[in-house]
Design a protein around this nucleic acid. Sequence first.
DNA 1: TTGTATGCGTTATCAC
DNA 2: GTGATAACGCATACAA
Lengths: 343, 343
Amino acid sequence: MEENKYVTIYDIAERLNLATSTISRALKDHHTISEKTIKKVKKTAEEMGFVPNTLAAGLRGNKTKTIGVLIPTVTQPFLSSLISGIEIAAQKSGYTVIIMQSHDSSEEEVNMAKSLYSNRVSGVICSLAMETRDTSHFLQFSNNNIPLVFVDRVPKDFNTFRVVIDNYSAGYKATKHLIDQGCTRIAHLTAGSEFGNLYNERKRGYTEALRDHNLPVDEELIVNLKSVTYEAGVKASNKLFDLNPIPDGIFAPGDIIAVSAVQTAKKRGIKVPEDVAVIGFNNDPISEIIDPNLSTITHPAEKMGKAAAEIIIKKLKSAKHDEVKEITFLNTEVLVRESSARK
Amino acid sequence: MEENKYVTIYDIAERLNLATSTISRALKDHHTISEKTIKKVKKTAEEMGFVPNTLAAGLRGNKTKTIGVLIPTVTQPFLSSLISGIEIAAQKSGYTVIIMQSHDSSEEEVNMAKSLYSNRVSGVICSLAMETRDTSHFLQFSNNNIPLVFVDRVPKDFNTFRVVIDNYSAGYKATKHLIDQGCTRIAHLTAGSEFGNLYNERKRGYTEALRDHNLPVDEELIVNLKSVTYEAGVKASNKLFDLNPIPDGIFAPGDIIAVSAVQTAKKRGIKVPEDVAVIGFNNDPISEIIDPNLSTITHPAEKMGKAAAEIIIKKLKSAKHDEVKEITFLNTEVLVRESSARK
DNA sequence: TTGTATGCGTTATCAC
DNA sequence: GTGATAACGCATACAA
């Protein structure tokens, strides 16, 4: 390894008395270069500690083999698993992933999007910040034919790829499961009603399931959370357990919230699942650990990440300027564990 | 926003009948450019939808304002919090963060390091893969004067910056806390004894604390985990609870492991903290949620990330080629919660 | 099969 | 205050 100096193809060319173009081609196994030369070049490159300069290559070719990921935070199990999936798929095709966090702020999201564009990423995967309404900062990508995929928290009206689950049917399934367990007074914790079509869809599934099974939709059993945190969950759960009679089932749109309901119930001497059956959402690691184990809806984070990355890579390969922007729906399943198993 | 074409400073220059050099300088508030021109240029740039090309700038100036982060995985609370800290500090100084995961594989770590180098990152922050012994793939950074900071899982013998906690004294404190609670038969779960000086240090703190308080170091109370997973923790805990008498205290070097001990105890009818007091490590979110709440040692992930990023930024600013590579120690604290509170 | 020449977008140097 | 020009490292069109 040379000291203090980047080795370039020019250095290799000089050493071997070849043209830089030959070096460049040899390093990429170009078919017009002889086996012998290729071997020789690669060997010397290795010896001299040559590492290609991606900046130069990207500038020249106007493509970077980089996928930009723009998400609210990496500290949520769902999102870190999403990254994991993206990364695995990207790596398989030789793509680099660059991750930026919006911290659920629209303003930061705008800046980060600009930064990704500035870095000339080849494609973008995004899960929207909670407060984002205006999505015009994503036009710079679609206008320039940079593949853009929204995942999970997607905008309503933006013509691009989406990878999502069917939140409506997931909410329906969760609720139906509780009904199947014999629950008749099922509560629902929900969040972000104004924007998040995501939570709204789960709620719609909940109400439809009740209706389909001739159960009343009781507004006092639907509690809106200010934020999706453990503390907010405790507060909301206490509200439910203050009712008389208390609900005999709870569908929470996230595992953290569901866990808060379970713990709050336990603290108040309410038995789970005997007195109240609980089902969460996401299948976060914690759902398997708490006691009783939490029933939940699977949310295939890693698969979604993989799918999103593959869409981008495929799009980049075909290079066609087609206008078909499909929506990819991934499956969810009811995972029955102790917290809702009554029979 | 223009369609399908990156706007360059050349386009702006043409539109305004100015030289590209003037545009470039105006956009950076260069003092030799008149206020009027600066304003005009910025306005037109905005109008035309100009976004600087970081690749070109990086190539030209041979610096990218990008910090590369190389960690085992993003799906661990400690590491995702670390990233969060890095990102916040980086963003404040206009740096971009690019994250790569080694998945605890040395081979991938070597590749990713090369990729970071290839991307001409300005600095690197790394927490080593579990299996990494040979660290020569990091020489490319130090040899080329690219600031390199190791965090948490650091190599023994590499002359560069380190940001760590004092694992020895943390282990000592945890053990002493259990002793203070009246425990006399304290078990320790540990891991990766061959390499990880990190776990070894915690263990050393454990044994020293016992010795200092005239308690015997009983080898049957020290169980080595194959991996730091919940399942491995359950297995090890069962081994401990099969002993007669069982230990009256357990110090686990991670919260997941500690939680597995607590849950296993509960399942066997052993009371926590009455029969056995448990203390973990890291202060992961789960430690506050399980019942009983888990006592733990704080591990200031976000602060560590912030510190690491700041070291790099500072180093980059000074540009001096000094040889002082300090080690930054961050504080840890005993967080007493229910799982170890006996009095 | 290999070489020559050029340009990607920016910035620094030097000139005016 | 502003302009012309070269250079960063690589990849490609074209020539040989």
